[in-house]
């Protein structure tokens, strides 16, 4: 009798301590900037944190490194139990993170890796090199049969964004398989209006561009605009179609691929990234050892299979 009572008490104590433990946990979420795919990850983080019963403090740095620094310091002051951070610029917030480390707060970097940091305990994010590679590979498969010199337009993201740099690297690696290809690279700073202008001008200078790679698929509508302008708007499979691939997984990319304008996009798994970030934080708070690098490669979908996979695409509405 007393044994049963004892275990009931033990379980109750465990339950209540877990409850109170969960109630006590506050996660500090430092976001670099609010835009569509970032919101996708932060929403996933918020959902998972809510599920775990954590309190969440969100701060947004609006693209300013200094602001992010002080915001992280503010999180440290507020004695959060863990910090999830996506850095404005992967090199900028070291000071604040070291402050966190000194205060004993575990730090999980998400989406942007901080390889040189002395304070980050774990990273979860996309495998941008493999994402770029996948998009490039599909492009190569489409262009393989063509003879003569092939000109390809690459719309670069922001040149100080590691994900943009890595996507470009993967893409270029894939294109090495084609012997006679020339890649025209134009920077867009992730801005669609600039992508529009860059694409327009690129096609002016090289009317015979056979393929376009967009580092973010939100720029695909701009590509559509230009191709319509110059009467080169042909769907997948049609004669004269310009191969278009991209990385991200937004609604723009989804729609363009579904309708057969774009050949395919790499969809990042934002939900899993968000969940994993919170799980890593939980593990670190509990003092467990975690893997330092947790990359989540995206999935490549073509116009054929994208609609059936709609549920897994974060941007698809």
């Amino acid at each position: 009798m007393s044994k049963v009572l004892g275990s009931i008490v033990a379980i109750a104590m465990l339950a209540s301590s877990t409850l109170s433990f969960a109630k006590d946990i506050t996660i500090g979420l430092s976001v670099d900037q609010l835009f569509e795919s970032r919101v996708g990850v932060t929403d996933a983080i918020k959902a998972e944190a809510a599920k775990q019963g954590y309190k969440l403090i969100e701060v947004v740095a609006d693209g300013d490194a200094q602001t992010q620094n002080s915001q992280i310091q503010s999180l440290v002051t507020q004695e959060v139990d863990a910090i999830l951070v996506c850095a404005v610029d992967q090199n900028t917030i070291e000071r604040a993170l070291i402050g966190a480390k000194r205060a004993g707060i575990p730090v999980v970097a998400y989406d942007r890796a901080l390889p040189d940091s002395r304070a980050v305990d774990a990273f979860v994010g996309p495998d941008s090199i493999s994402d770029g590679l996948a998009a490039g590979q599909h492009m190569v498969d489409q262009l393989k049969g063509l003879s003569g010199d092939i000109v390809v337009l690459e719309l670069l993201g922001a040149l100080n964004d590691q994900n943009g740099i890595d996507r470009s690297k993967g893409f270029n690696d894939a294109l090495k398989q084609l012997p006679n290809v020339e890649i025209v690279a134009m920077p867009t700073d992730w801005d669609s209006a600039r992508a529009l202008a860059a694409t327009q001008n690129a096609f002016q200078a090289n009317p015979d561009i056979k393929a376009v790679f967009a580092a973010t698929d939100t720029q695909i509508p701009s590509i559509e605009t230009v191709l319509t302008d110059i009467d080169k708007m042909k769907s997948v499979g049609e004669e004269g179609h310009v191969v278009v691939t991209g990385v991200n997984g937004s609604n723009d990319g989804y729609e363009a691929t579904r309708k057969g304008f774009a050949d395919g996009i790499v969809v990042m798994d934002l939900a899993l990234t968000g969940q994993t970030a919170v799980h890593l934080a939980t593990a670190l708070i509990n003092g467990e050892k975690v893997e330092m690098t947790n990359v989540i490669p995206g999935s490549f979908y073509t116009s054929e299979n994208i609609e059936s996979n709609k549920a897994t695409i974060w941007g698809a509405k």
Partner: peptide
């Protein structure tokens, strides 16, 4: 403050 020189540090 930041540990590195950022080309865009002043923009905002």
């Amino acid at each position: 403050n930041l540990g590195n020189a950022i080309p865009g540090v002043g923009d905002t």
